[in-house]
Amino acid sequence: MTFLLDVKGLNVRFRTEFGLVHAVNEVSFSVSKGETLAVVGESGSGKSVTALALMRLLDRTALIDGEASFEGVNLFTMSEKEMQKIRGARIGMIFQDPMTALNPVFTVGDQIAEVVLIHRDCTKQEAKTRAIEMMGLVGIPDSRRRVDQYPHEFSGGMRQRAMIAMAIANSPSLLIADEPTTALDVTVQAQVMEVIRSVQESIGLTVMLITHDLGLVAGFADRIQVMYAGQLVETAERDRIFYETRNPYTRALLDSIPSQLGVPGTELKTIGGNPPSLLSPPPGCLFQPRCVHATEDCRMTRPELKSVGQNHLSRCLRSSDLGVLR
């Protein structure tokens, strides 16, 4: 099988006045053509930093190393100029806040057409036609009229659709969606996820969905990878993550959601404490201080990501003796 995106040994560290913050540590993963990979984690887990590093959108305080081969080229070694040809053309990206991602002084249509003009040799009229077409594709009603409207005339959900239209206007092969619905109401979230799904089917898009919401992932992802404190802790095909959980953090995360299927009013299982400081990560397993299964060994030895089943990796010293966690 060929991978569309193959990331090996990604490290992202930020220089701060207190020293280096290890935001992403030795993250390796790959995305196959056409699949939806969800990257799940809480704030500070490094999920968004991973995406921004791939797009090379981090500022100068970030030190990136590793390898990211995308359609046969390494994203980290190419020049900024070559990277500009990839951003918005081969990889599209949508962000959490559709309110700030659009420029208020240009019409929505202009902004979509602009992205087309940057990457294609075509006339303004052709670009605008493309913009209208894209707006139709993401379900903006009456796109011929709305193409000339300004962002403030769009509601939150419509703006996020416009952002998707912009991200896919050049038929990219990969779409990175960073918390695309976090700022939206739940009924609008449902619409936007439908749009991403239908676009994915109609143009054969590969999607990397970054989110904290395990509910969203349950209905949407093919494969899930869970991150904690800058590390990948578990990755597997969707149902395995939910029903054959092998990593104690994943289990704890699943347990702390007040589910609509659970018994109301009961004590929720919680993860005690807080994530470790990324400035000076403790030795041993990073989740160990909060883990109910931790032993003396976990305090000393940093676990590796190990195979625990078919395409199923988990970072836990005790994965073989703990087995499937429920």
Binding site: V186, G215, A218, F220, F242, L254, Q260, L261
Partner: peptide, 12 residues
């Protein structure tokens, strides 16, 4: 509203 809430359970 209830129908729009995603549930953390793939089978459901």
């Amino acid at each position: 509203l209830l129908s729009a809430v995603p549930l953390a359970d793939p089978v459901t």
